[in-house]
Amino acid sequence: MTAAQADLPTDLRAKFLEMPEGLRLDSPAVADGAAIWRIARDSKVLDLNSSYSYLLWCRDFAATSVVARGADGEPAGFITGYIRPERPDTLLVWQVAVDHEQRGRGLAGALLDGLTAKVAAERELTAIETTITPDNTASERLFLSYARRHGASVERKILFDAGLFPDDGHEAEVLYRIGPISAPGR
């Protein structure tokens, strides 16, 4: 259980997944940028951004992102996110990735719950948004499971049509808006 989860009322705590044994939730640091880039690259499903962008993300958006650390302190998974400027009560989850050796342990769901608790402890949070390509069933399962666990509805619409992308073969990005979500600790 994370510190933020421990602060939740008992009735809400049951809705939040605990971190798998041997892992702990933490905020990313700039020094984690290279490992996060490698996890994203090795996922083979995420759009890989420059290594520089992951360093910036760890510096500028650490408050709205999380990493799972193993006993050695190295990242085993991560979620990057940011607060939408036009909707300050909405967290956009940008990327979710788990190291291959940690898959199948519920880590992505625990990271998502931990991130929600972390952000909601600092600000009003009523919705989460993410985009998912139609072929990414793992991400769809993750976010639909999150919505069910938290009793939230899911709205879906195409945010970016495939024709908007300059590279061939990029699928449409479907926006998933999940809410209202319970504001832990509020």
Rank of each mutant, 00 (worst) to 15 (best):
M1N: 06
Q5A: 10
D7P: 04
L8H: 11
T10F: 14
T10C: 08
R13D: 02
A14S: 10
K15R: 12
K15T: 10
F16C: 10
M19G: 06
P20T: 03
L23N: 05
L23K: 00
L23V: 06
L25H: 00
D26K: 02
S27W: 11
S27H: 09
P28G: 15
P28S: 15
A29M: 14
V30Y: 09
V30M: 15
D32R: 02
A34G: 03
W37Y: 15
W37V: 08
A40F: 10
R41Y: 14
R41H: 07
D42L: 15
D42Q: 14
L46P: 04
D47Q: 09
S50V: 14
S50W: 13
S51F: 13
S51T: 08
Y52S: 14
S53K: 07
Y54L: 10
Y54R: 04
W57H: 07
W57Y: 09
R59E: 12
R59G: 02
D60M: 14
T64G: 08
V67I: 12
A68N: 05
R69A: 10
R69P: 00
R69T: 00
A71Q: 00
G73H: 11
G73D: 09
P75F: 15
G77R: 00
G77H: 03
F78V: 03
F78D: 03
I79W: 07
T80P: 03
G81D: 13
G81V: 13
G81Y: 10
G81H: 09
G81A: 15
Y82N: 04
P85M: 15
E86C: 12
P88D: 15
D89K: 08
L92D: 07
W94A: 01
W94K: 02
Q95V: 07
V96K: 00
A97I: 08
A97C: 09
D99Y: 00
H100F: 08
H100T: 04
E101L: 13
G104N: 03
R105Y: 05
R105T: 06
R105M: 08
G109Y: 04
G109N: 05
A110V: 00
L112S: 04
D113A: 06
L115V: 05
L115G: 02
A117L: 07
A121R: 05
A121P: 02
A121H: 09
R123S: 13
R123Q: 11
L125E: 13
T126M: 15
T126P: 08
A127H: 09
T130N: 12
I132G: 04
T133M: 11
T133S: 05
P134M: 15
P134E: 13
P134V: 14
T137A: 15
S139F: 07
S139I: 01
R141P: 01
R141L: 13
L142S: 04
F143L: 05
R148I: 11
R148E: 12
R149F: 08
R149Q: 07
H150W: 07
I158A: 13
L159T: 04
F160G: 08
F160Q: 12
G163W: 09
L164Q: 10
L164C: 10
F165T: 01
F165V: 02
G169Y: 03
G169F: 03
E171A: 11
E171M: 08
E171C: 01
E171D: 03
A172R: 01
L175E: 07
Y176K: 06
R177K: 03
R177A: 11
I178R: 04
G179A: 13
P184K: 07
G185K: 04
R186T: 12
